[in-house]
């Protein structure tokens, strides 16, 4: 196997008490692209995230990042290697200020207080939380908590950012704000799009957003058999 791949997940399976949550999922991620991992509720998206970031250990299969095996590593080691995830259910450090929350992420790359604080201000400004930088995270609204989750992850200087349902629980206006923020990150890094669909723990489609949207098995997974997509 060539070792210069960015992220490769190969035949990974994970079951909980005999119930397969992820079975034989393989996917490749290239440097510089945004990969959308979609699927209906309970498809196994979060489980796959947990497997990649070390919160769960795969039963079988290989996960490699830049030629190094990730299976068996602790989450903080994987974070040091450059993979940072956010949580679907946000986990702010409630009693700490927004700035301190972000500073925890900054300390991933530096032990120096001044440097960490400088970087934290930069990121707080980038995600638009600078007015609330000194407020406790518990006082933030849901969309702001999502921003904070993103900000903390960015602060660790990741090479690969795994966003787990950054939009869940938001109304359309708030969703657009987060989308704008993700676009901003994309522009800053020059990324392109691709989508992978998983359903019942199995990978069922892989391609650019338009092809995937027209794929019959994807339509079936979301809308049921017999559904069709009105084409223009």
């Amino acid at each position: 196997m060539e070792s210069n791949r960015f992220l490769s997940v190969l035949n990974v399976s994970k079951s909980f008490r005999g119930l397969a949550a992820i079975s034989n999922v393989s996917l490749e991620l290239n440097p510089g692209e945004i990969l959308g991992l979609i699927g209906p509720n309970g498809a196994g998206k979060t489980t796959l995230f947990n497997l990649i970031t070390g919160f769960l250990r795969a039963d079988s299969g290989e996960i490699e990042f830049l030629g190094k095996n990730l299976v068996g590593l602790e989450p903080h080691q994987i974070c040091k290697m450059g993979i940072t995830r956010t949580f679907q259910i946000v986990k702010p450090f409630s009693h700490l200020s927004t700035l301190e929350n972000v500073a925890v992420g900054c300390y991933n790359r530096t032990a120096d207080l001044k440097e960490a604080e400088e970087k934290a201000w930069e990121i707080v400004q980038f995600v638009g939380l600078n007015k609330k930088a000194l407020d406790p995270a518990s006082s933030l609204t849901t969309p702001d908590r999502k921003r904070l989750e993103l900000a903390r992850a960015l602060a660790t200087v990741p090479r690969l950012l795994l966003l787990d349902e950054v939009m869940s629980g938001l109304n359309p206006t708030e969703e657009h704000e987060i989308i704008d923020l993700v676009r901003k990150i994309r522009e800053a890094m020059g990324l392109s799009d691709r989508i992978v669909v998983i359903h019942h723990g199995v990978c069922i489609a892989d391609g650019d957003p338009r092809t995937v949207g027209e794929d019959n098995s994807v339509i079936e997974a979301y809308l049921g058999k017999g559904a069709y997509l009105a084409k223009d």
Partner: peptide, 26 residues
């Protein structure tokens, strides 16, 4: 006022989130 102090608080507030941000919680 050190990294260690802030890491202690992060561990207290949310162990998993701290791990995800590169804190060796153990």
């Amino acid at each position: 006022k050190t990294r260690m102090g802030l890491y202690f608080l992060a561990v207290r507030e949310d162990n998993d989130a701290a791990e995800a941000l590169g804190v060796n919680t153990l």
